[in-house]
Amino acid sequence: MDKPVNNRAWWLVAPVFAIVAFSAIIPIMTVVNYSVQDTFGNNQFFWNGLGWFQELLDPSTELGGRFFDALWRNLLFSGIILAIQVPLGILVALSMPRDGWRVAATLVLMALPLLIPWNVVGTIWQVFARADIGLLGYGLNALGIPYNYTGDTLSAWITIVVMDVWHWTSLVALLCYAGLKSIPDAYYQAARIDGASRWAVFTTIQLPKMKRVLLIAVLLRFMDSFMIYTEPFVLTGGGPGNATTFLSIDLVKLALGQFDLGKAAAMSLVYNLIVLALCWVFYTVMTHSGSERPEQGSAA
């Protein structure tokens, strides 16, 4: 058998190569290039090898110290966000109406926070939480609860967390709602016939059937919260002090504020790897938990 040999099929793949090159490979390689060099301005660069990476991963140095501080802040923030938004989203989804005009009304209401640009969300909460004129800040202080997000670390964190919950719980709820809607009525009917309690229905039917969308929700919320920038930047600018300086905020300070391109490049590469690695871990754990290979043929 003679197969005609030609390479014309490459033309079909070429546009994808071009797009990926411009959107991913070239920018990343630029960053890699910066990460192994040092610059003192004037567009002069000097070879630094793995120096920035060594400094970055050593908590005793100035660079390493601020990197790990920001990293722990990020992990803590993501942990809090997932711990609140996932259960809350499920709870909201469970209490959403299942049919009638209320469905449309609820969906629109739920989608609203998702449609607001991130910097606007930050601005809304910045004003809302201000102790002098904001309804929330003024109200809390009037009730005798000391609250000041520009001066007090705890206040700042609570504000950012509440803001993120307000902004993104809808996403988790909508995903879970879609998962719930896909459960056939027969499951609920069977559960009633089997005399299952409300809690048993949740743990034996609803939660297992929502597993796939929950996986997506957790991944999305983790990635988003781990890369959060705009809202805290607008709200607190990383303060008070460095209390809400997350990795992304620190990165921008380093790269654009101090113009330490080499340090910033090394930091952004490590940051990127952490996000990738954690997503891979989440995905692997959630897709492999409790799965057994399906058996082919009759099991009777």
């Binding site: 027969a186 016939i193 005399g195």
Partner: peptide, 27 residues
């Protein structure tokens, strides 16, 4: 009353034994 539906309804996370025991456990 017991009912068997058009599409098989089993509790995915449970073993066959747990599935069969479920109505009795609930009672």
């Amino acid at each position: 009353i017991a009912q068997v539906f058009q599409f098989p309804v089993v509790y995915d996370t449970m073993t066959v034994r747990e599935n069969l025991a479920f109505p009795l456990k609930n009672r």
